[in-house]
Design a protein around this nucleic acid. Structure first.
Lengths: 93, 93
DNA sequence: TAAATAGGTTTACATTATAAACTATTTTAC
DNA sequence: GTAAAATAGTTTATAATGTAAACCTATTTA
């Protein structure tokens, strides 16, 4: 009936990030920050957690002279998101 | 885009409780405990929070000689739940 | 060259979730 | 009758989480 909800996804900011990443090839840190209206500190921490869980991959490079952080959702991330949504339906329908 | 999710509802156990209460006239503590597979302590705390938020009402009485705690969802609770689900859709669709 | 901006990360704090321990009463077993 | 177990919860302590403030490094602007 009520299967446990993946605690990594059951978090407002991480869920928003995953939702955004599902829709695009990849996204920059600043893009995610703007879209989610989060602080950089909070976003940084949550991206770390998602990466450690294997739900996203993070690449650090440079855009001109400035650092650039780019995020991509992984296959495992897509699967986890889908499972989460499937489970969640039992709670909200 | 990503409206904040009511933190009182964005919690696995409280959401499960609200989901159950939406479907019935009223429910006993033990019923909620069994359905949610939670511990009594955790359930007790979460019911308190929902009551203090005005999302449920709690009545204490006796069933025979034993204490009986009965919960009902309030109008405000129904509204909050509906809003939560509506908001959540932006995250998971 | 001082101040502001960009792009983050680290750290500290406050809030939460959760289970363990506890209370009070009742039923069952001896 | 009384010791042990069960019922129905509440309170308390702890661990985990979420969040923003403070910080860092480099770059651009005044």
């Amino acid at each position: 009936m009520f299967k446990p909800l993946d605690p990594l996804l059951h978090s407002q900011l991480r869920l928003a990030v995953m939702s955004l990443l599902l829709a695009v090839e990849e996204a920059e840190f600043t893009f995610l920050k703007e879209k989610t209206e989060s602080t950089a500190g909070n976003l940084s921490v949550q991206l770390d957690k998602l990466e450690k869980a294997g739900y996203i991959s993070i690449e650090k490079s440079f855009k001109g002279k400035r650092p650039l952080t780019t995020c991509k959702i992984t296959q495992a991330g897509v699967k986890a998101f889908e499972d989460y949504v499937e489970n969640l339906k039992n709670y909200i329908s």
